[in-house]
């Protein structure tokens, strides 16, 4: 699971610019809690769509706290972050808008149907 999460953040870092995040700037700190009482911290810095990932401590505008197993599902697109937030399984502190913007960086559910594939099919 930790590998999935690390791979996800690596992908974000490599992705560089995200056009959906061009209106967004700020630092999100992820507190990812493991079963072992250890908390992994990741820092996502967004500057008008430019996305950078770091493990170095810095002042966050928003904190997203979530347990490791669930976060692994979220970054794989198998769990929905918004619904988990409503269930209090994901907690936002600070700038909620920034936290919600993070959804733009998340993948959708695997195997979703693309309506464009129906073209020409009767």
């Amino acid at each position: 699971m930790a590998d999935t999460i690390a791979a996800f953040f690596d992908g974000l870092q490599r992705g560089g610019h995200n056009r959906y995040l061009e209106e967004v700037s700020g630092v999100i700190r992820f507190d990812v809690d493991g079963d072992d009482n250890a908390t992994d911290r990741w820092f996502l810095e967004i500057k008008n769509g430019d996305v950078g990932v770091s493990r170095e401590d810095r002042e966050p505008d928003c904190v997203i706290r979530v347990d490791r197993a669930l976060f692994g599902e979220i970054v794989a697109g198998r769990a929905n972050m918004y619904a988990a937030w409503l269930r209090n399984r994901v907690v936002f502190e600070g700038n909620t808008r920034l936290a919600r913007s993070f959804e733009f960086a998340l993948p959708g559910p695997p195997g979703a149907h693309d309506p464009r594939q129906d073209r020409g099919r009767r």
């Binding site: 209106e23 959708g108 979703a112 149907h113």
Partner: peptide
């Protein structure tokens, strides 16, 4: 705009 769709989700 903050909640605009970005992915396929049935």
């Amino acid at each position: 705009s903050v909640t605009q769709g970005t992915k396929l989700d049935d």
